[in-house]
Write a protein that binds this DNA or RNA. Structure first.
Length: 464
RNA sequence: GUGGGCGUAGCUCAGUUUGGUAGAGCGCCGCGUUGUGGUCGCGGAUGUCGCGGGUUCAAGUCCCGUCGUUCACCCCA
């Protein structure tokens, strides 16, 4: 069999990289669970009519088909999910009778999109989602809560600092209606182009595409320019002199979110009200979130979400929700590729037990078993080569300790930390490596800050 | 899905302009070093030049296709 060629957009990690991915996913799970969110996993496939709901035909869904299907080209009516929110909405409807509301859940799963891949954007990728879903009415404080949980989760990750940008669809839609825009949705779509084209071009599109006057367009741009780290945006919006009921609701809601997360703002995480944020035209009805990674703005958003008041509905009952997702593949793979992150070693082993000669391999096996019995990941040397070779084997794999079994009746066991060269007598029944060497860890070679332990934003707050 | 850049040793890359013997550094292997690696010294091997086809006496180099990768658009994690 010849060497297989890689499949575009389906990234696979090496063992040491997988260590980092596991650490990130585990960290996220810990924080989510700490806040009482339950983990679920949904199936990989959904009926196509679910996936393509709301006319989202541009989602590039991968469709399933039986190979033996008689009718050529006939699909199974199923596709791989392209996010975790749509399957979750279906899951809620299907299990509504068995779930307790408000239902707080998280998922860490793969999703698939048939788009052309590039850095940070893949056809198969892992993301982490948290959502809260309620029956009929979801209190607004949950918008604040999911933001806080994600903020805490992000601050605890061994990744560059994250920024959560927040806006509110009611705010901007109310504003646009307040200035007399006929088609607020169209205005939102145009304003969303601000990071792609110049303000002048957006202004022109607002006039030609959205039917605004020059002065209306200027007001929209003035709104979009507002970005604050606290609730001071309220005064800035008011200064524009636009009045609308929806605008007032949106201002109050956005202020609540920004104020509610303000105490988590720190070195690892920051929050901003950014009134140009729109997030497309899909199901969001109020709060909208977007996450960016500091220094990696070229990746665009690495997470996002918001309030959706009508994503799930069985016709009689509506289940409003609010949630945020974070792109694990999107952030991790570029960081790994650029050497900003690395696993400390590609194997779990903390100890390599040397083999003196093949006749005494059993002695080495006993030592290894004693160490393993106490939870120390241990492997035994492949061959009874010169000790120099056996040490080099450990060095290549980042195994920090090499164990030399007692040789002869009155000899004693010795263990060597090959990183510094210390070699000491040791008892396989009681010796333990330092806790930080027991398992592979995440290294952040290009930054000064240690990857472990990660302080949460809350802990930093308490210290300062 | 549309358009552009790139693809040479395990890694980072030079060589492509003007077709003419496949290169460097790092890493790897061996020896100095009979069992303890890393430093140093000496020696050694790197390879379907992404893949397929075409032009030519001759292709890493030019042309076409394809796959991979990357950038922009689109969309978004």
């Amino acid at each position: 069999m010849s060497k297989p060629t890689p499949l575009s957009g389906f990234p696979e990690l090496l063992p040491a990289e997988r260590v980092v991915e596991r650490a990130v996913a585990d960290s996220l799970r810990r924080t989510f669970a700490l806040h009482g969110f339950a983990e679920i996993e949904t199936r990989a496939v959904e009926p196509l009519d679910q996936l393509l709901r709301k006319g989202e035909t541009s989602k590039e869904v991968y469709v399933l088909r039986r190979l033996q299907e008689e009718a050529a080209g006939k699909d199974s009516g199923m596709g791989l999910h392209f996010d975790l929110t749509v399957p979750f909405a279906r899951y809620v409807l299907e299990n509504a009778g068995k779930l307790e509301f408000p239902f707080r859940r998280f998922q860490v799963q793969k999703a698939w999109r048939g788009e052309r891949p590039q850095e940070g954007r893949y056809r198969e990728f892992t993301q982490a989602d948290i959502d809260v879903v309620m029956k009929d009415e979801l209190p607004f404080h949950f918008d604040v809560e999911v933001a806080r949980v994600m903020a805490e989760a992000l601050a605890a990750l061994p990744l560059p600092p994250m920024t959560l940008r927040v806006n509110n669809r009611k705010l901007i839609e109310g504003f646009y209606r307040g200035i007399g825009a006929e088609d607020p949705a169209r205005v939102i779509a145009v304003i969303d182009k601000l990071d792609k084209v110049t303000a002048d071009e957006v202004s022109g599109m607002l006039v030609t595409d959205a039917g605004l006057t020059d002065s209306q367009a200027e007001q929209c741009l003035a709104l979009a320019r507002i970005t604050t780290a606290d609730a001071s945006f309220v005064d800035q919006v008011r200064a524009l002199g636009v009045e609308h009921e929806l605008l007032e609701t949106g201002l109050a809601e956005l202020a609540q979110v920004v104020d509610g997360v303000a105490d988590l703002d720190g070195e690892r995480f920051s929050v901003r009200a950014q009134l140009s944020l729109a997030r497309g035209l899909d199901y969001y009805t109020g709060t909208v979130f977007e996450i960016s990674m500091d220094g990696f703005e070229n990746l665009k958003s690495v997470g996002g979400g918001g309030r959706y008041d009508a994503l799930a509905s069985d016709g009689k009952t509506t289940y409003p929700g609010v949630g945020i997702s974070f792109g694990i593949s999107r952030t991790l793979i570029p960081l790994l590729a650029r050497g900003h992150l690395a696993g400390s070693r590609p194997v779990p082993s903390a100890v390599l037990v040397a083999v003196v000669d093949e006749e005494s391999r059993a002695v080495s096996n006993v030592v290894a078993q004693q160490l393993r019995a106490r939870g120390i990941p241990t492997e035994v040397a492949v061959a009874a080569q010169k000790f120099g070779k056996q040490i080099r084997y450990a060095e290549r794999r980042g195994i920090p300790f090499v164990w030399f079994p007692a040789d002869g009746a009155d000899g004693s066991h010795q263990v060597k930390d090959i990183r510094v060269g210390n070699q000491v007598d040791a008892d396989p029944a009681s010796w333990e490596p330092p806790a930080e060497d027991l398992h592979p860890t995440v290294l952040t070679p290009l930054t000064d800050q240690p990857a472990q332990p990660h302080q949460s934003a809350q802990q930093q707050e308490e210290i300062s």
